[in-house]
């Protein structure tokens, strides 16, 4: 878990995040930060690198427009902390 923490601090890549246009609807996923244990699985397994870790190592949707709703992040979240807005 220490790995993801340092990664979060070191890589605050300015400009890497895309601005999300909320008029299109909500972000593709909802993250329950109370249940998330910062295990890094969703961040590492997402094939589109949608997430960046925050300072605690929890996922932030940094590139939401790249999400293909492939389901990989939420089927692998051991703590049911991710739900999809895609029905």
């Amino acid at each position: 878990m220490t790995d993801s923490k340092t990664a979060g601090d070191a890589q605050a890549k300015p400009g890497a995040k895309s601005k999300y246009d909320y008029s299109k609807g909500p972000l593709p996923l909802e993250i329950n930060l109370t249940w998330c244990k910062a295990c890094n699985l969703c961040i590492a397994l997402c094939p589109k690198q949608v997430f960046e870790p925050d300072r605690d190592g929890k996922p932030v949707q940094a590139r939401p427009d790249d999400c293909t709703q492939c389901t990989i992040c939420w089927v692998h979240c051991p703590d049911f902390a991710i739900t999809s807005n895609y029905k």
């Binding site: 998330c36 244990k37 910062a38 295990c39 089927v75 692998h76 979240c77 051991p78 703590d79």
Partner: peptide
Amino acid sequence: KFPSVWCPGCGNGIVMGA
């Protein structure tokens, strides 16, 4: 009470979801 007692990233939770 959630989250579970398991360590962060433990596969038990993934099995539970499936």
